[in-house]
């Protein structure tokens, strides 16, 4: 311990360590990694961090004395009456404020446990036919090698479908930032992100596009995704074309079992 040298009061050390841990979590997860810790979990994390820090700070008699001493003095020392009155007013007031803010009604909808991108069913009925998602492949994918010219045409057709139907939400740059994106929750998918279509097979996309939000399986309940059921608006060919376009524009390759 460095307190002999630095002479930072024990109580201040305690606050610094706890605050530092909180700040550290924030720096690492929010700022550096860009994946903030959810508040519900953060609350539990900090609770146990505080418990742990208190345990270390009260493990020895000397350290406990240094920690409790100033607090005891504040409560018992007649000379600090003024400070005491201030503390005894401010602390309950802060607590009251905290409770008030917590109890404030908010427009935040209640928390829901749902997975937005669940495991696909092994087969699905679309356009009145049954597709086996395990073996389903894009019927146009082979043209990429066999007939590049026709392939370009199909991609262009897919682009047309995309601009007419999809870009309002998923954005004209396919980054999930379309004009309507701000109003939607869950947010429209960002296809540029390496974690989305690059991780998926084309058959998965076919399923998600064709059946939309209402086609999500049970584990994705409640079905609040506003993605339409595109099989009602697009043809099978158009869906395959737009899938070609998604991969072509973003430069990602669809995942396939063949290469693994």
């Amino acid at each position: 311990m460095t307190y002999q040298r630095l002479r930072v009061p024990r109580l201040a050390q305690l606050v610094l360590v706890i605050g530092g841990t909180y700040g550290g979590f924030w720096l690492i997860f929010d700022l550096w990694l860009g994946q903030p810790i959810p508040r519900s979990l953060m609350g539990m994390y900090m609770f146990f961090v505080v418990v742990g820090v208190l345990m270390v700070f009260t493990a020895t008699e000397k350290s406990t004395g240094q920690l409790v001493g100033p607090i005891r003095a504040l409560v018992e020392d007649p000379a600090r009456r003024w400070l005491r009155n201030v503390v005894f007013t401010v602390v309950p007031a802060l607590a009251a404020l905290g409770v008030y803010l917590q109890m404030q009604p908010s427009d935040e909808p209640p928390l829901e446990l749902r997975s937005i991108h669940p495991a696909p069913p092994s087969s699905v009925k679309i356009f009145g036919k049954r597709y086996d998602l395990m073996s389903l492949e894009n019927p146009y994918r082979h043209l990429e090698k066999d007939d590049p010219e026709q392939f370009r045409e199909l991609v262009a057709a897919g682009g047309e479908v995309y601009i007419r139907n999809c870009q309002y939400c998923h954005g004209d740059k396919l980054d999930g930032k379309g004009p309507y994106a701000q109003g939607l929750n869950p947010v429209p998918l960002n296809f540029q992100d390496i974690g989305t279509i690059a991780q998926l097979q084309e058959s998965f996309l076919f399923w998600r596009i064709a059946t939309g939000g209402p086609g999500l399986p049970k584990e994705a309940t409640p079905w609040i995704s506003s993605m339409p059921v595109w099989e009602d608006f697009l043809s099978e060919e158009q869906i395959w074309q737009v899938i070609l376009y998604l991969y072509d524009y973003t430069g990602h390759r669809p995942r396939s079992w063949g290469h693994e």
């Binding site: 903030p36 508040r39 935040e108 909808p109 928390l111 929750n185």
Partner: peptide
């Protein structure tokens, strides 16, 4: 994880 919509 239990997430609020903003966190989502």
């Amino acid at each position: 994880l239990v997430l609020t919509n903003e966190e989502l």
